[in-house]
Design a protein around this nucleic acid. Structure first.
Lengths: 390, 390
DNA sequence: GGTCTTTAATAAAGCCGGTTGCATAACGGG
DNA sequence: CCCGTTATGCAACCGGCTTTATTAAAGACC
């Protein structure tokens, strides 16, 4: 039975969260009066809460602004430089790493070739590399998110992976956590990409998103009410695990096979250039997967479908044929809009750093329920190094 | 911005809920000491909470039990007779109605033939009939749940229905609510059946359930984290809205068509009796839907699949062929168990009364978040009239 | 420069809810 | 009739928030 004991402390904690999220949502320092007005809390309460937050280091006070009449108010700012969060996307063709401050500001990004030494050491190396390149101190690192292709257990172990067979069975979360001494969240790459698109990409503003990735594999991931659908066996979305489709010709790698061109990207490029064979193959492919996609739409009925095909913008060569093929399967006219991915292949690494925010926000902020500042993690932030104003 | 003002009252309210759900979970009156121990609340707090609950009439005090040494303790009991909740399942072949007290105890059940007068009056008539037959006073009615085949808008309007075309466009919830002067919740019949199976039927104990109904139509509904998946257009689960399947031969009614026997039930009966043609047709049918079912399993990855085929127990004639056909489609060995429906056709009306509990629990109980006492609404409660002890 | 106005920060008092601790009431048993 | 046992009720205290009042710190004005 859930006891309600200690609700007073919970109230204080909730107020901390309210003030913190308000400060984290803007760059401008806010005065006590404004915070009080925005949160509905009384002035003394806001003051007490800010005192607590100052002690944690997550909020810093700025010099009183001396404009206008009256006593100048102290202003408070979210201390985005108080910590770092890193995300790593590890695939068979290399690793990507991103490092952000606590407000989601991108401080560094790097790509690495596949590591011949094997194991998970490339994750550690990617984080060290991106930290060096952006001249940040890894001592300030608070949490790490890792994206892997395959089925990942709740404990962070890689249960199955066609793309990274050498890591299967490894407790990736534990290994990386031991290496770097920080909490680590591991999840499937497609799921994390879906999360990134839902929060800061083409699905922004929608809480129910179906993410469809067509590349070397065919994968579907769904975000419902803003959270990734994991599934009982954590394999929700592994549409590649279905038989009877063309990619089973090369089931060893779980990859799609193409005939008019060697790779899916090449087919898309050729179709975009007007190649009739490529266009026909895409139409044929869309007709094959339309039944599955229509079934997903009918069962989940999402607000939007985000499609990533590897060659943005793919609207003409992939999105419209797919949309038309799916429409043929549906009787009801209601159909969610099909849009092209906004984050591209960076969605995975952005999702990785996002899940790091999510999973360990309580540890990072010492208060529970603080959301990751996802609105900041957008694709249009330049890659350039952006130092924090100390 | 969500203010946290008034958290003290929220705490009291939460404690009311904790005590109330404890009392509602058992038939035996509980003493303050036991409640205090079970909820973790202190004795004076429990006393204050119970005073509040006594005023609402949802809890009644019993005479002190005079057993054992020491001063006899006052005992408190959930006042299940303090109100009634009704559920109606309206379909093309008639209506079913059930009426329960606040603890989910079945007080009456009735079935009606289709009403020639049309409209929603049959719903009202069904409720009056079941109330008369069980000799309960409808003045005590607190809320009504209505199940309809078709797509139902959030406001309770029937947007589309192949089975009840004469009701399409009617604001069913508003009409019934005006008729009976009580809050009304309307939802799709299959969705409500899925909810009933998840809470008190074959899916009890699981929070993620896929419910598959094969009868006159083919429908899938999913319950995720204990709540019905509604979908953006409220048509999540309308698998019958997909083209390319055999039932589109008779798309006007959205019904399945069968060749070896006139109806699906007859096919199942014949197959159970050993008819080879019927068995072959079932196998053929399962092969057709296996792709769709497999896709659902891969996207949702539920804990269990509940199948209702109209002829319980259908394990041998329907469930196993379906399971085998789906297994052929999957590469991963993980597959949720397929089980037969436990509630049968009563699932719909049980779901209707359940959603009435859900939607209006705050109004019924004056406290927010109180769950419907679903564990009581089980199939094995006899239909017999069960008067409340006044 | 002194005073006034304006606004922010602090202090005091009170409310609400919960808990602990102790005294008291009601019963059976010796 | 007294005693142990158990439940009840009251008083005191704490933690958090709010309202009200007081003090502090700036600019404006004479």
């Amino acid at each position: 039975m859930d006891t309600v004991r200690g609700a007073a402390q919970a109230e204080r904690s909730a107020n901390q969260v309210a003030c913190l999220r308000l400060l984290a949502g803007t760059d401008d320092p806010q005065t006590v009066g404004v915070i009080s007005e925005q949160t509905g809390l009384s002035r003394p309460t806001v003051h007490a809460v800010l005192d607590d937050l100052l002690e944690t280091g997550l909020v810093v006070a700025t010099d009183p602004s001396t404009v206008g009449p009256g006593r100048p108010a102290r202003a408070f700012r979210f201390a985005r430089e108080a910590g770092l969060v890193a995300g790593v996307d590890l695939g068979p063709r290399g690793a990507r790493a991103i490092i952000c401050d606590l407000s989601g500001r991108r401080l560094g990004y790097t790509e690495l070739k596949p590591d011949r030494r094997g194991g998970v050491s490339v994750i550690q190396r990617a984080i060290h590399t991106v930290a060096e390149e952006s001249s940040v101190d890894l001592e300030r690192l608070r949490a790490i998110g890792v994206a892997l292709p395959g089925v990942i257990e709740t404990n962070g172990q890689l249960r199955a992976s066609l793309a990274l067979p050498e890591l299967v069975g490894l407790p990736v979360a534990d290994l990386v956590s031991q290496d770097l001494g920080r909490p680590v969240a591991v999840d499937n790459d497609i799921k994390l990409a879906a999360l990134a698109e839902q929060r800061g990409g083409a699905g922004r503003g929608y809480s129910d998103v179906v993410y469809l990735q067509i590349g070397h594999r065919l994968s579907v991931s769904i975000v419902l009410n803003g959270v990734i659908r994991q599934g009982r066996h954590r394999l929700a979305g592994e549409l590649g695990a279905q038989r009877g489709m063309r990619w089973t010709r090369n089931a060893q790698r779980g990859q799609l096979t193409w005939t008019s061109q060697p790779t899916g990207e090449a087919v898309l490029r050729a179709a975009a250039a007007g190649d009739a064979d490529a266009q026909a193959e895409i139409e044929d492919f869309c007709a094959q997967i339309a039944v599955r996609v229509a079934t997903v739409l009918l069962v989940v009925d999402p607000e939007i479908v985000v499609v990533r095909g590897g060659l943005p913008p793919e609207s003409d060569v992939l999105l419209r044929p797919l949309e038309a093929a799916v429409e043929k399967e549906l009787v009801f006219p209601e159909r969610p809009p099909f849009v092209s991915s906004a984050l591209g292949r960076e969605a995975v690494v952005l999702g990785a750093v996002g899940t790091a925010f999510d999973h360990f926000s309580s540890g990072i902020y010492q208060v529970h329920g603080f959301p990751s500042p996802w609105t900041r993690i957008t694709h249009d932030i330049p890659h350039s190094l952006e130092r924090t104003t100390k």
